[in-house]
């Protein structure tokens, strides 16, 4: 099985406790329709498993196929520096059909971030290296498309419907649904 390299660290955007028995890592592309389909599934699983699940999102944009994917990823990273990563991540996945630079600045404003911070970061490619680092860590970890999931560091090759992914997470928790 492919191993997640590097393992989760403080560098990652994580939702849920660091000592949760299960860490789910997604490599995703904000413009990928399959990632859009996986978004509500992950939300439902976070609700189901509560504090027993930590979720981490890493960027894997296929920029030559998805023209807005790189800027969407960079905008979410810029929002992270303002402490609003998940607000931006969620806003983008909930509006996948409208993610031009103008749209991204609007979602930032809605999250309480100065939109000029986002447009400035996009123009300067401030977060492009960070996004590329995520991408290459995915390549090294055996990610070949999106979304790709890792459960406690092991690549998960099953389906990403709530049933299949939920079963795999449940198995990793040792069978406990909620605390």
């Amino acid at each position: 099985m492919s191993r997640l390299t590097p393992p989760p660290s403080a560098r990652d955007h994580a939702h849920g406790p660091a000592d949760a028995p299960v860490t789910l890592v997604e490599y995703g592309d904000y413009e990928c329709p399959y990632c859009g389909a996986a978004y509500p599934v992950v939300k439902a699983l976070q609700h189901r498993f509560g504090n027993r699940l930590r979720f981490i999102f890493r960027n894997f944009p296929l920029t030559q196929v998805h023209p807005h994917a790189a800027h969407a990823a960079e905008a979410a990273e810029a929002a992270a520096d303002a402490g609003k990563f998940w607000e931006m991540h969620d806003a983008i996945f909930e509006h996948q059909g409208a993610i031009t630079d103008h749209d991204l600045a609007g979602y930032a404003a809605h999250a309480g971030i100065d939109p000029a911070v986002i447009t400035g970061a996009l123009a300067a490619h401030t977060y492009a290296p960070r996004v590329r680092e995520d991408f290459m860590s995915g390549v090294r970890s055996g990610v070949s498309g999106t979304p790709s999931f890792f459960i406690n560091g092991q690549k998960y090759d099953g389906g990403y419907d709530a049933g299949s992914l939920g079963e795999a997470i449940l198995a990793a928790t040792g069978g406990q649904n909620r605390e």
Partner: peptide, 13 residues
């Protein structure tokens, strides 16, 4: 498509 799209993206590496 996915495989070649991936390699296209990894090309600089």
């Amino acid at each position: 498509g996915d495989q070649l799209a991936l390699y296209n993206e990894v090309l600089p590496e």
